[in-house]
Design a protein around this nucleic acid. Structure first.
Length: 521
RNA sequence: GGCGGCGUAGCUCAGUGGUUAGAGCAGCGGCUUCAUAAGCCGUGUGUCGGUGGUUCGAAUCCACCCGCCGCCA
């Protein structure tokens, strides 16, 4: 019985439209979600926006909108972007939704009742740039290290604090007992040393806010930032509003997050859940950043390339492929427009796309698309010198570990290159004149190799996979494909027949080659 | 400033103690024509950021330095 798989991404600040960094995370999580579905696991894939922030209400005021109108508009912008990228999320949570507010209030009340929240008069130095209080040891020459040009303000107010410091030993035990809780391992080491060095209690409410979730036991205060945002992972599956749904999906099997927010997900979040008596997630999967021409992609830098331009021009599949091939998901990677073109042409147009074109064309040209007497054929020639089982095993491990760039490398080098070499070796274009029976068998083998490739690439390029799969009358039909079918030698269940779309008698290219202009650095 | 990560061929990345450090792309030479001027074959003398150390042996462990990046609740 396959286990359910509940996967989330970080929720995004809706201050601007999504950039390539957001896209990287969503695509990586989407690949995992699609991969799990292909393995037969029931998947719930949650994404969303983080809306209960001071910045959001400020921005809304600037635009003359009330906050809810503003965040709803921005939610549409994000949803549209994810739809264009073919993100297969099952749900999109906005933290301004009632289900989230109810769940948050239930949660904070429980933690309060269990004695992990206390009130304290707090006097601190507040940095307006960071929108946060600074401790003495954060300061450099009496100023905020990030905003040395601004004066710090002395602010005093009564806030509620979460007793994070009481969870030090329990957290360390968690990391010890569940070594897979944080991946990759370097991130775990980071968190362990952070927690070992000691945790301070955190302020989790603010006074005098007009936007955000009221604290149920003290309506003059509102829940602040992380204690609200992290809870989307439970409220998104019904915590506080639909307990049956919550029981079905919780705990989360994978939280996909960026390395900048590791500590909140690996220390604060499990502590919060412990405080509320809720089960801890199975894994926090940390990804790196996409660096554009050496500079970090950032909302405040202003992006040179809008990723959506590439998506619109070359398609979601191409964008998804190139980004994940170029940038290792678990670490930082580099991306540029030139790199995009190079990888697109080499891997998609020349290698995969051309393999598809030449195979389909030969079937049409020599046999009118009908490969008779190919029913029941064990098509094992293309990968005959490959240990398909161990290949499948290793590829699957790469997928589970989110090493997508390496997984794609394996598919291209071990499968697609082999198929191209097979054509060169068997020369079906000569066989068409000398040995038509043999030619038919060769083409059937190629078709079945394309089927294997289509299965493996479908988490990455769902549209392309379907196009390839639909180019022949394979059985079972596309909706029934399973990841593990890739690892077994295929036997044809019908006489193969080309059903690919053609234009003026020619096969439509999967990925039209991008013509590069003369010279541009 | 404190803590942490990264720095491997022109480019993007593998490789974490053991023979002459690898792949793809780009480049160069040849073959081929089914195909999107695509494919196949051949071709890689890199101080593995620097210095010092541990070791019989280090890209791989330790220290310091330089550069880039993240966090500092």
């Amino acid at each position: 019985m396959p286990e359910k798989f509940y996967i989330t991404t970080a929720i995004d600040y809706p201050n601007n439209k999504p950039h390539i960094g957001h896209a990287f995370e969503k695509i990586g999580a989407d690949v995992q979600a699609r991969f799990r579905r292909l393995r037969g696991q029931p998947v719930y894939f949650l994404i969303g926006n983080d809306e209960n922030t001071v910045k959001v209400s400020k921005r809304a005021k600037e635009l003359g909108l009330d906050p809810k109108t503003y965040v709803d508009q921005m939610a549409e912008v994000f949803k549209t972007a994810w739809r264009e990228l073919n993100i297969s999320n099952d749900d999109f949570i906005q933290t301004s939704e009632e289900r989230h507010w109810k769940g948050c209030q239930k949660f904070i009340q429980i933690v309060y009742d269990r004695g992990y929240i206390y009130k304290k008069a707090y006097q601190g130095l507040y940095c307006e740039g960071c929108e946060a209080f600074k401790t003495q040891r954060d300061l450099v020459d009496g100023r905020c290290a990030q905003h040395p040009n601004q004066e710090l303000q002395v602010v005093e107010e009564e806030n509620y604090f979460f007793a994070l410091s009481r969870f030090r030993d329990r957290l360390l035990a968690l990391y010890r007992e569940r070594p897979d809780f944080i991946a990759p391992e370097t991130r775990k080491n980071e968190v362990v040393s952070l927690v070992e060095s000691g945790l301070e209690d955190v302020s989790i409410t603010r006074q005098n806010l007009d936007w955000g979730i009221p604290v149920p036991f003290d309506p003059s205060q509102r829940i602040y930032v992380w204690f609200d945002a992290l809870l989307n992972y439970v409220t998104g599956v019904g915590y506080g509003t639909d307990e049956d749904k919550f029981r079905r999906w919780w705990p989360a099997d994978m939280h996909v997050i960026g390395k900048d927010i590791t500590r909140f997900h690996c220390a604060l979040w499990p502590a919060m859940l412990m405080a509320a008596g809720i089960e801890i997630p199975r894994r926090v999967q940390v990804h790196g950043f996409v660096l554009l021409k050496g500079a970090k992609m950032s909302k405040s830098l202003g992006n040179v390339v809008d990723p959506m331009d590439l998506v619109t021009r070359f398609g979601a599949d191409a964008f998804r492929y190139v980004l994940l091939r170029l940038c290792p998901f678990t670490g930082d990677g580099e991306f540029s427009f030139d790199q995009f073109i190079t990888v697109y042409n080499a891997d998609l147009a020349n290698n995969l796309g051309n393999l598809y074109s030449r195979t389909v064309t030969m079937c049409l040209k020599y046999f009118g698309g009908h490969l008779e007497n190919t029913k029941g054929l064990v098509a094992n020639e293309v990968f005959d010198d490959l240990k398909l089982e161990s290949f499948h095993e290793e590829l699957t491990r790469r997928m589970v570990d989110c090493e997508y760039n390496l997984a794609l490398g394996m598919i291209w080098q071990e499968l697609l290159d082999r198929a191209n070499r097979y054509i060169d070796r068997t020369r079906p274009f000569e066989l068409a004149k000398t040995d038509r029976d043999r030619c038919r068998i060769v083409l059937a083998n190629l078709a079945m190799a394309l089927r294997t490739a289509a299965i493996y690439i479908s988490p990455f390029m769902p549209t392309t996979a379907k196009t390839i799969y639909s180019a022949f009358n394979f059985s079972p039909d596309y909706s029934g494909i399973r990841w593990d079918d890739g690892g077994t030698v295929a036997r044809t269940s019908n006489d193969l027949r080309v059903t690919a779309e053609t234009e003026k008698g020619k096969v439509r290219p999967l990925f039209p080659r991008i013509q590069v202009e003369a010279q541009s650095a």
